[in-house]
Write a protein that binds this DNA or RNA. Structure first.
Length: 190
DNA sequence: CCCTTTGAAACAG
DNA sequence: CTGTTTCAAAGGG
């Protein structure tokens, strides 16, 4: 597995990406994305993975793809209406749906989430209705464990009472919930 | 089995 | 309007 990170030019935030690169397909296969507050955060996450063959991008091809992904994400952060789930396909970035979401329940949740577009919001309750479940906390659990935030826009899920809801496992006010707010705000149409 | 979980609803103050 | 209590189903240990 490889990792790559960059600092956003728009938001005060680092993005850390774990991925696998296939030279045959010239494709970056996403495994996990993290929002990080600072470099220390990144170090912790990288150490935690502690995979023997963990390395940074080596080939020119993968660097090229990652740079495109970097730019795509920063455009998104600057308020451009981009469907990341779709846009990454065009720059040879992909993911394995079954690997990311092994259970039936999580797949259903993510399928509904994938349908929410830029600027839209959905509530935990509405997701529950659509998948015929009232296990709201379990839905929150799936979203918390979302391996590819941003790509799968879990920040668009808010509470039914209009409150922002939790983010990255944190419910109280924090930089995590502030980030969720920022992400929702930048999607607001001008 | 036991515990926790990015929530909701009902209720108290 | 803020706290509590109960509910609910999935997932990890």
């Amino acid at each position: 597995m490889n990792f790559y990170y960059f600092k956003s030019k728009i938001l005060d935030l680092y993005i850390l990406i774990f991925y696998h690169f296939s030279e045959e397909k010239n494709q970056v296969l996403l495994k996990r994305i993290f929002y990080c507050k600072n470099l220390e955060d990144i170090n912790k996450k990288v150490k935690k993975i502690n995979n023997d063959h963990l390395k940074q991008p080596s080939t020119l091809q993968e660097q090229e793809i990652l740079l495109k992904l970097n730019n795509l994400i920063d455009s998104y952060f600057s308020g451009v209406n981009i469907d990341l789930l779709d846009a990454i396909k065009q720059i040879n970035v992909s993911y394995d749906l079954k690997e990311l979401f092994p259970t039936e329940f999580s797949q259903k949740v993510m399928k509904i989430l994938s349908k929410t577009k830029f600027g839209e919001r959905i509530t935990y309750s509405e997701i529950g209705e659509k998948i015929n479940s009232r296990a709201y906390q379990a839905i929150g659990n799936v979203l918390k464990n979302n391996p590819l935030p941003l790509i799968f826009p879990c920040h668009r899920v808010i509470r039914k009472d209009g409150k922002i809801g939790g983010f990255m496992g944190i419910t109280k006010k924090s930089w995590e919930t502030d980030l969720k707010k920022k992400l929702l705000n930048l999607e607001r149409s001008p």
